[in-house]
Design a protein around this nucleic acid. Sequence first.
DNA 1: AAGAGATCGAACCGCTCGGTTCGATCTGCG
DNA 2: CGCAGATCGAACCGAGCGGTTCGATCTCTT
Lengths: 199, 199
Amino acid sequence: MPVTKGTTIDPVRTRAAILQAATALLYQRGLDGIGVAELCARIGVSKETLYRHFGTKDGLVATMLETRSQRVSDWLAAAVAAAGDNPADQLAAIFDALQQWHDEPTFRGCAVVNAATQHHDQTVRAITARHLDRYLDLLSDIATRAGAAAPAALAHQLLILVEGATVVAAHHRTAGTADQARDAALTLLAAATAAPHDS
Amino acid sequence: MPVTKGTTIDPVRTRAAILQAATALLYQRGLDGIGVAELCARIGVSKETLYRHFGTKDGLVATMLETRSQRVSDWLAAAVAAAGDNPADQLAAIFDALQQWHDEPTFRGCAVVNAATQHHDQTVRAITARHLDRYLDLLSDIATRAGAAAPAALAHQLLILVEGATVVAAHHRTAGTADQARDAALTLLAAATAAPHDS
DNA sequence: AAGAGATCGAACCGCTCGGTTCGATCTGCG
DNA sequence: CGCAGATCGAACCGAGCGGTTCGATCTCTT
């Protein structure tokens, strides 16, 4: 029996549904932790359909990572936009958003970074590097508008805090990691914007 | 033909040799990136020997992670010990050591954290949590001796910097990440030990 | 009404996986 | 010397992998 009765045949919708369900499963179980057969069974789709839409498992992974990266970046950018004009407030908003994310019971670290850790092939590494670039852009903007003496250096340090907080939150039982990172970020911001004691 | 001629039969030495060679291979290729057959072939040992010493592949992985965690922690502790008595110097020494590590061509992130990202089973997660505890102990000691107002909080922030620098160095092309983290760490240390502006 | 195309479910492919077993052969100890 | 045990190499196992194919059946468009 094909095309389970009642279901609308819409390739675009099918593709999106596969992507959404596969994203969650691959995140929870790891890229190598679930096979295509089980993946399809859980999603409720046949292997032929999945392969027609994404070509290979790696193709599915690449598409999902790119989509996820974009979504997460947009989500953080939205948090910044909602925090008003003060760079310090915007920075705090990023770490507050991170803390919310880390507190979700399904949290397992950043899916994009995790993927690069599991499959260090060219494709995934490139997506991950771009992902970090997106974060860096966001943080650079804040650092620049805050009037930091060395905005690029500050942004880099803030990126380290963002990724470090995510890793520690994923692998250490201590709660409130992102809150600690927020305090550190605000301290660094204050230090970088303080009157430079030039000679 | 067994026991390749000329080789000394010494179970202890054999076990150590397997552990050392497997550590490098599993780190470079990932836990799921190399099978037991190829592992044995590259190490130069038969499957029976490997299984007699470690029981299962997971047993080998657990043993190797525990060993690696201890070695890396000792290495960082030694870097601290060699840096004199000044807490700030000791902190700088940690990040200098990290930078050296990150610059190695085979660097792929922290093997222990990577393992937890790949196999999030109970055993590996426990080893990783202990690993972060070791780091935290080292950093707590420095924070306390530096006279920080809240040494536990500072130590946690420093841990975030250590792990963040490692992750960013592993996945982003920018060089000198640990140096940036060192500057941030020193800034945080200075801020935490500055005369508190209490009322 | 009819054809195009999406989807299903299941069978199938070759391959690799982790793990076991066995006989041959070597070393080290008493 | 002679035995215990460490090791080898290779064959073997069942299971699962990623991926392909096929006929049946459904929906959608014209």
